[in-house]
Design a binder for these strands. Structure first.
Lengths: 188, 188
DNA sequence: GACAAAAATTACTGATCTGTACACATTCAA
DNA sequence: TTGAATGTGTACAGATCAGTAATTTTTGTC
């Protein structure tokens, strides 16, 4: 119960950082938009960086939970789930609040590979890749690791393209490409 | 000839913004690292945003010229050139100064779709897509537009992955995937 | 109602941000 | 030699940055 305020802060900060970027969002803006005092913020987090790391942890949890659950709802077989990844992506791109991948943006603003924020963004991608790999194994792919890598490339590319191009449907293109790659990897 | 100083500024600012990010790079840092006075900077560019736009124009020119020329050197046939795209990407990823795609990073820091910097980043991607589409047409793809979109997804995904994952070879994965997609699109 | 933890308020520090003002130096051409 | 264009150096404005200190208010629990 006593964690409530902290959770509220992280939840609201997530929205603001996601919409506005990390460097462009000052602590004073967080105070104004969350209604939480700066003293409280600095009681829960020693620095802005610590807050950002907490935000990214929440984002990772939210996003992967959502994606895995949605894929599970959309298909039963491992092969079907690999394909459903891109249907789920399409749903995400269509949401009003879609603003691209928070981890790509984090790595763009904190470029140093050793920076904790960059490291955490990389960890998110690794967890996704692991999940894709397990799905590819269950589907019986000849080279599950390679297939998972390729599907991850399509996913990341689709996200970037969804942000930067209006008049196209990257989730559909990625899904069509994925089907070809999957069929080729499952063929005997 | 009197454009020299302005060009020098844009060239040096490109390096600094690319390494350090846009918001994280202040005009005072540009003064310190370029040796060009702030007064001169603001004589050539009314605002920091104008300077960034000029930097992105130069980057677009440099990058596309390099990529197109490199692909031309690596292969003769249109199909070979589509594949060579990913060999060229691999060379780029291996360079010491590689820091990801400047336009992805620009769109991450200036998220508003109407923002001039975001618009210019989108234009860069559109020009690349056009080039890919022409190559796919020359190669005789059944659906040149679709193939070009898919290859662009692989390219963007590979760049993002090259930034965020150390222990893998996204250019190779993308190249292998591209071969499958191209073969499927060129098959009768 | 009493008590203690948590949060808010307010004001502040020192640094940095974009952008400007002004005086002075350099270059080049007529 | 004059004069205009282009450059530099320095100082500054006004806002905002991350982060802190001291005090008061709110809140939940016994």
């Amino acid at each position: 119960m006593r964690q409530t305020k902290r959770d509220e802060l992280v939840r609201k900060a997530l929205d603001i950082f996601y919409r506005n970027g990390f460097h462009a969002t000052g602590m004073d803006m967080l105070v104004a938009e969350t209604g939480i005092s700066k003293t409280s913020m600095y009681k829960h987090f020693r620095t802005k960086e610590d807050l950002i790391l907490a935000v990214l942890r929440l984002r990772d949890e939210n996003f992967r939970n959502w994606l895995y659950r949605r894929v599970d709802e959309l298909a039963d077989t491992p092969r079907g789930q690999l394909l459903a990844l891109f249907d789920a992506l399409g749903e995400w791109f269509g949401k009003r609040e879609f603003r691209g991948c928070m981890f790509i943006k984090a790595s763009a603003e904190f470029q140093d590979r050793d920076h904790p924020i960059h490291v955490q963004a990389a960890e998110h991608k690794r967890l996704l890749l692991d999940h894709f790999t397990r799905l590819a194994e269950k589907a019986g792919a000849k080279d599950a690791t390679a297939l998972a890598c390729q599907l991850l490339l399509l996913k990341e590319g689709a996200i970037v393209t969804a942000v930067l191009s209006q008049n196209c449907d990257p989730a559909r293109d990625a899904g069509l490409a994925a089907r070809v790659l999957i069929d080729q990897m499952l063929a005997v």
